[in-house]
Amino acid sequence: MNAMQLCVYGASLLATALGGAAVAQEAIGQYVQVAEIEVDPAQLDAYRVAVQEQIDAAIQKEPGVLVLYAVSEKDAPNRVKVFEIYRDRGAYEAHLGSEHFKKYKSTVEKMVKSLKLVQAMPIALGARTK
């Protein structure tokens, strides 16, 4: 799955979670990006634990974090994509300063071989509400 496919998939999941047409209107002003991460294959299990802990904390504690999805490539599980949607740029910056994100970064520092952040724009969001 390439970054564009991931964005479309993530946007569809977001629309499902938040409810259809209203999502398209709310998308204006949101901060959206895809993090492309290459993880040391020998540390993949530990990385998965760390990213799950960070996502759980961010969703629970930060109202400006709307979506965080981590997926890996089927044929290369050490290539991880994190689809992120924040209420706005300020919510993203607050996320970067949070204690749980700082803990995640220090925990995975030696696990991550490369990181590329790709800013994205929602084009169309749609979902079945039930």
Rank of each mutant, 00 (worst) to 15 (best):
N2D: 14
N2H: 05
M4D: 10
Q5S: 14
V8I: 13
V8F: 08
L13P: 00
T16W: 07
A22T: 15
V23Q: 09
E26I: 00
E26T: 04
E26V: 01
G29F: 13
G29M: 14
G29P: 12
V32Y: 08
V32M: 13
E36L: 09
E38R: 12
E38F: 07
E38N: 12
D40C: 12
A42S: 07
Q43W: 00
L44I: 09
Y47G: 02
R48S: 05
V49G: 01
V49Y: 02
V49D: 08
Q52C: 03
I59S: 01
I59D: 01
Q60S: 09
Q60N: 08
K61L: 09
K61V: 02
V65K: 03
A70P: 11
A70T: 13
V71K: 04
E73F: 03
E73M: 07
V80Q: 01
K81P: 00
K81N: 06
F83N: 02
D88I: 13
R89T: 13
A91K: 04
E93C: 08
A94R: 08
L96Y: 02
G97K: 11
S98E: 13
S98I: 10
H100Y: 14
K102F: 04
S106D: 10
T107H: 01
T107W: 00
V108Q: 00
K110I: 11
M111A: 07
M111S: 07
V112D: 05
K113Y: 09
V118R: 04
A120G: 11
I123L: 15
I123N: 15
I123C: 15
A124C: 11
L125V: 13
T129N: 14
K130D: 15
